[in-house]
Each structure stands twice: as structure tokens, then as C-alpha cells.
Design a protein around this nucleic acid. Structure first.
Length: 670
DNA sequence: TTGACCGTAAACAGTG
DNA sequence: GCACTGTTTACGGTCA
């Protein structure tokens, strides 16, 4: 029959994924699987493969067909039941209705053929039959679902893992619930639609008829819920239970599958996993003012996006719409799988990074006292890139040993300043902006990676100006001769040890170029000091008041967030430095008070001084209290007043304090 | 597209 | 004359 044709068509695509067919052990229906077979044969000879449900429908269909033919015969005999009339598209008839059965008289034809009383009687009769069929049909399906659920439960008892079992049971429960809802909704729609096609046909026919009973708005809502529900099926599928046949690729059934919000039933087996989201939600609710599932006035629950005016409304919405129920639990599990997938992806990427580093011979040869965080890897890569880049462009053209020969000793304490992508790919002009962007104190950076820079032929990610300033500020007198600055460079950085002419020229160039470097004549020569005021003024538009300040503040805050995330991630890797409150404070302060410094030591100074980010600094710095410098008596190797090296090598937390201590004299004078 | 910033290179002058 | 120091200019790259 054409009814079966319609149902067969549906079943061949969506209903075949319905799960109903599989549940009925009748994936192909009585039509013989071809889907395009003539229904007459199919309807006339229900084969042995037909499920009881379909057999029932078949019988009912036959009865209905007889009634229909009877009515038709009472009419004009417009066409034979098996004629081609139905092949003509029924005008103004829903396509699905027209498709229902070529043998079936369309409602319009019915109206033309039958008198109103006859038509009404026929419709009532059909509706009654349909309702009965539907009830029986759904009852059968529920039985099937229960049967499979029991089967799964028994099978699950043999599995050591209970979680997937619970999920399967959950899925089955969902199926049951959805089936019930579908039944109710379908029946309701049928009652509302007097002219709904009444062909129960095969098991999937009721599902087919549903879409036309759903208004577009309903469809939208249903689709929204389907999309929200879809991951559940994905999760189920991933766990080996393919229940997606119920939904995927079938808009109609997807809509039918949707569980309305009323479907908050408690599962009899009460999975423990269901408590997870609830607790999680509750814990978040304890945090006033914010909720991780609430942002931008929307519910961030997967697939929800419900607009909530305030947090209270959201909480209410959360408790009502995302309460402890099957769907929420399943969605939570899906989210867990998402996280797991991301973790797997991260692991893969980390492995790739390791391979890349190994390929580039950048793998640290020395054993690490603790696990190597990603930042350290990145730092190594950065170092490798820098080394390679600089080696390729060494002005002096001197051959330079590979950086790996001087593997960093303290890369584990790398801050974020050296992990920027630009650092990875650029050497020159980007360095200062890197340090600015990441607000890394050059002092902290150097303290953390002193050994690294000292041994590795890696160019430090700081500008000449910041390095010169750092060199000067490291001294008690805060003044250095040019030669002392040279020595500081060569002492602190292997890179500058091996490259001379270019960077020295650059140092001189920077000393002369920047106003912040003040040359003071000494008895025995000239010394260079730092005018912090001018140093801060180097980027006055970013300092205060200007719109760019806000921009920079925002960017600084953005980095602060990034840095915080990074710190959190690294902290979990037992990154000792990042557990240091000093580091945290430095980062946060730099993030909040980022005003565009080459190094954040100045920023830290400001922050620690009086909480103000005023660029104005100590009179000592500003007025250059350059007391005539005595004989340098350099001996740079042991004259360093502040042993960053020692502190770096000894204690990872001290350097930061030392940095602050170094800056304190400046701050105290402000 | 523009300006700021930076690095690099180079020329030049002064000084010891 | 040479080396060092200091200044200045020019150019190209990057970024906001």
C-alpha cells in the first residue's frame, strides 16, 4: 500500500535510525527493505519479518483501507483504490499528507466526495482508529524499550564499568520518556488536526506525521532542544550504544524525539553521576555575583542560551531547566567528554612539540628536577628560534655553538614573557613589546633565567634600552660607564659575549638616543644614569589619561588574565615560582597597572611604592643623584651588588623578593 | 595607511 | 693613526 510506501520512505532514511525499527527487530519493515517496492505487495503479504507492531498496524491499515474504499465506492467512484489518483499531487495538501498514500483520498477529495456528515464521521472513525493504533504502537515500543533496557542492564552487570551502563540506561530512559512525550504530543496533534493523515502504517508512520503537526515556532524550539540533546546521543554513541538512529538525519524524528522541559523524571536507578552537575551548580551558586554557566545575560548551559536578566533569574532558570534530570546528566557527561577530548588534543600537541624539539635538538640534556611545563618547552623553542635566528644574522659573522650546548639550567622558572609567539619568530624589534605585552619584569626574568641567558647563546627578549636600564639600576650607584655596561651585557648574556660590534654600537646608539639615559661627567670619565621619569615618558601617550591608556590597560588586563591562566596551568605543574606570591603579585600588578614599560620592574616599583601608577618616580632617579662615581674598580665578575645569579640558583622565590628589594630603594623615595 | 618603536648600520667627531 | 666614546642619520621591520 502507499501507506507503507510513505512509511517505508520515512523508515528508509530517518526511521531506520529511529531505533524503533531496530527495537522491533524490523529494520526494514514488511515492505521488503527496498523502500521503493509497491505497497500492494507489501500490504498484501506481511511477511514473517514483520514485527508485531507492524503486523498490528498492517491489520488496522487493512481495516481502514476497507472503510475508505467503502466510502469511496459510496461516492462517485472517482478512482479505484489502487489507482493513480493519489499520484497526482494533492493541491493544498501538506506534502506529507499527500505522500501518505497514493491510494488514499486526500482530505480535499474527501470533502468533495463525501458530505460533511459523512466526512466528519469518517474522520472521527479514523481518529479513533488512529488513536488506538498509536496507543498500541507506543505501548509496544515502550515494551521494546523496557526489554532492551533490561537486556542492557543485565549485560551491564557483567561489565566492570558502571558509568557507561548508567549512561546506556539513561539513554534508554530517555528513549522511554521521549516516547511517552512523543505519544502524548502526537496524539494531541492528531486531535488538533482533524485532517491529519491517519495512516499508522508501519511503526514509523506516527513519527512521520508529527512534523506537520508542529508549527514552525515549535520546530524551532524543538530543534533548539534537539541540538542541545544531540551531544547526548553522541556520547551514547561513543560509548557503544547506538541510539542515534532515533534522531540523526531526521528532522521529523528529531523533533519528535525532543523531550520537553517537562521531562524531568527521576531515574529509578539513580545514577550517581547525576549528582555531579547538581553539586557543581550548587557550588557555583554559592559564589555570588558570577556563575560559570552564566555570561552575557545568557545561560551558558550547552545548547540553552536562555536569556536571563540577572543572576537570580539565571539561578532560577538553572534550577528549573537544568535540574538534576536525565538530560542534564547526559549533557554533563558530554561536556566531560569534550574536556577529555581537549585534554587528549593537548597531549597530542604536547607530544608533537616534544618531537619538534627533539628534531631541533633543543631537548634539554639535563634532567629536570620536576616536570617540564609547557612554558619551559616553549621557552626552549623560543630560545632555539632566537638562537637560530640570531646565529643566522650575527653581525660579526662568528660561528656560534648551538644553543643546545648550553642548555638552560633554570628554564623551569620561565615566566610567560618568553613564550610569546612573536618571541618565537622574531628577535629584534619585537622583544620590547613582548616584554611589555607580558609585563614581565626584566629583573625577574633575568633572575629566573639568568643561568639560561648566561650560558645559552640566546638573545634576551628585551630591548637594549631596558637592558641598559637594568644594568644601571642593578648597581648601587645606579650609574655605569659605557664599558661597565658592556661588561654587564657580556656577563649576563652569552649572546652579547659572542657578539660585540653590533650590539655595542646599539648600546651606544640607545644611550645617546633615549633621553632616559643621562650622561654624567665624572672626574675620571662619564657615567650613564637612568632618568626614570624620562624612561616612563618614552611612551607618554600610553601613560595616563589618554585613550590609549585605557587600551593598554585593557590589554594589560587581558594579559593578566592570560597570565593568570598560565600561572594556574603552570601551578598545577608544580611550577614553584608561579606559586610564589611575589610572582603572582607581580603579574597581577603588571596586568592591572600595565602602562607600557619595557620591563615591569618599573611597574612593580610603582605598584609597590604607593599603589599609584604614576610614572613619577623617586627623586633619586628623577634627579639623578649621581654622586661622583669612584673608581669603578670593576671586576665585574664579583662586583655585582645584587647576586641575581646566586639567588636564582639557590631559591626560586627569593629572586622576586630580591627584585622588589632592588626596586624598593627607588620606591621608597617616591 | 600611518606613526611609534626598535634594531641595525653607518658616518662622523671628539678624545686619549 | 688607532681605539674608544658619543652623536646622528638612515633604513627596514613590526605592531597598534
Amino acid at each position: 500500500m502507499m501507506v507503507e510506501s510513505a512509511s517505508e520512505t520515512i523508515r528508509s532514511t530517518p526511521s531506520s535510525q529511529n531505533g524503533v525499527g531496530s527495537l522491533a527487530n524490523q529494520p526494514d519493515g514488511g515492505g521488503g527493505g527496498g523502500g521503493g517496492g509497491r505497497e500492494g505487495a507489501a500490504s498484501g503479504e506481511p511477511n514473517g519479518e514483520m514485527s508485531p507492531v507492524e503486523l498490528l498496524h498492517f491489520q488496522q491499515q487493512q481495516a481502514l483501507q476497507v472503510a475508505r474504499q467503502f466510502l469511496l465506492q459510496q461516492a462517485t467512484g472517482l478512482s479505484s483504490p489502487g489507482g493513480n489518483d493519489a499520484k497526482q499531487p494533492a493541491v493544498q495538501v501538506p506534502v506529507s499528507v499527500a505522500m501518505m498514500s497514493p491510494q488514499m483520498i486526500t482530505p480535499q477529495q474527501m470533502q468533495q466526495i463525501l458530505s460533511p456528515p459523512q466526512l466528519q464521521a469518517l474522520l472521527q472513525q479514523q481518529q479513533a482508529i488512529m488513536l488506538q493504533q498509536l496507543q498500541e504502537y507506543y505501548k509496544k515500543q515502550q515494551e521494546q524499550l523496557h526489554l532492551q533496557l533490561l537486556t542492557q542492564q543485565q549485560a551491564g552487570k557483567q561489565q566492570p564499568k558502571e558509568q557507561p551502563l548508567g549512561n546506556k540506561q539513561l539513554a534508554f530512559q530517555q528513549q522511554l520518556l521521549q516516547m511517552q512525550q512523543l505519544q502524548q504530543q502526537h496524539l494531541l496533534n492528531l486531535q488538533r488536526q482533524g485532517l491529519v493523515s491517519l495512516q499508522p502504517g508501519q511503526g514509523t508512520v506516527p513519527l512521520q506525521t508529527l512534523p506537520q503537526a508542529v508549527c514552525p515556532s515549535d520546530l524551532q524550539q524543538l530543534w533548539k532542544e534537539v541540538t542541545a540533546t544531540q551531544p547526548v546521543e553522541d556520547s551514547i554513541k561513543q560509548e557503544g550504544l547506538d541510539l542515534t538512529t532515533n534522531t540523526s538525519n531526521s528532522t521529523s524524528f528529531s523533533a519528535a524525539k525532543v523531550s520537553p522541559p517537562i521531562s524531568h523524571h527521576s531515574l529509578p536507578n539513580g545514577q550517581s553521576a547525576m549528582h555531579t552537575p547538581r553539586r557543581d551548580s550548587s557550588s557555583h551558586e554559592d559564589n555570588p555575583g558570577s556563575h560559570p554557566l552564566y555570561g552575557h545575560g545568557e545561560c551558558k548551559w550547552p545548547g540553552c542560551e536562555t536569556l536571563c536578566e540577572d543572576l537570580g533569574q539565571f539561578v532560577k532558570h538553572l534550577n528549573t531547566e537544568h535540574a538534576l534530570d536525565d538530560r542534564s546528566t547526559a549533557q554533563c557527561r558530554v561536556q566531560m567528554q569534550v574536556v577529555q577530548q581537549l585534554e587528549i588534543q593537548l597531549a597530542k600537541e604536547s607530544e608533537r612539540l616534544q618531537a619538534m624539539m627533539a628534531h631541533l635538538h633543543m631537548r634539554p640534556s639535563e634532567p629536570k628536577p620536576f616536570s617540564q611545563p609547557v612554558s619551559a618547552h616553549l621557552n626552549l623553542v623560543s630560545s632555539a628560534t632566537l638562537s637560530k635566528s640570531t646565529s643566522d644574522t650575527f653581525p660579526d659573522g662568528l660561528p656560534h655553538p648551538p644553543t643546545s650546548a648550553t642548555a638552560p639550567i633554570t628554564p623551569l622558572r620561565q615566566g610567560p614573557s618568553v613564550i610569546s609567539s612573536s618571541t618565537l619568530h622574531n628577535v629584534g624589534p619585537i622583544r620590547r613589546r613582548n616584554s611589555e605585552k607580558f609585563c614581565t619584569p626584566i629583573s625577574s626574568e633575568l633572575a629566573q633565567n639568568h643561568e639560561f641567558y648566561k650560558n645559552a647563546d640566546v638573545r634576551p627578549p628585551f630591548t637594549y634600552a631596558s637592558l641598559i636600564r637594568q644594568a644601571i639600576l642593578e648597581t648601587p650607584d645606579r650609574q655605569l660607564t659605557l664599558n661597565e655596561i658592556y661588561n654587564w651585557f657580556t656577563r649576563m648574556f652569552a649572546y652579547f659575549r659572542r657578539n660585540t660590534a653590533t650590539w655595542k654600537n646599539a648600546v651606544r646608539h640607545n644611550l645617546s638616543l633615549h633621553k632616559c639615559f643621562v650622561r654624567v661627567e665624572n672626574v675620571k670619565g662619564a657615567v650613564w644614569t637612568v632618568d626614570e621619569h624620562e624612561y616612563q615618558k618614552r611612551r607618554p601617550p600610553k601613560m595616563t589619561g589618554s585613550p590609549t591608556l585605557v587600551k593598554n590597560m585593557i590589554s594589560g588586563l587581558g594579559y593578566g588574565a592570560l597570565n593568570a591562566s598560565y600561572q594556574a596551568a603552570l601551578a598545577e605543574s608544580n611550577f614553584p615560582l608561579l606559586n610564589s606570591p611575589t610572582m603572582i603579585n607581580t603579574s597581577s600588578a603588571s596586568g592591572m597597572l600595565h602602562v607600557g614599560h619595557d620591563d615591569v620592574s618599573s611597574t612593580v616599583e610603582q605598584v609597590n611604592s604607593n599603589g599609584s601608577n604614576s610614572p613619577r618616580l623617586s627623586p633619586q632617579q628623577y634627579s639623578h643623584p649621581v654622586h661622583v662615581k669612584e673608581e669603578p674598580a670593576e671586576a665585574e665578575d664579583d662586583s655585582r651588588p645584587v647576586s641575581l645569579m646566586a639567588t636564582t640558583n639557590q631559591n626560586v622565590t627569593i629572586p622576586d623578593d630580591r627584585d622588589l628589594e632592588e626596586e624598593l630603594p627607588v620606591e621608597d623615595l617616591s
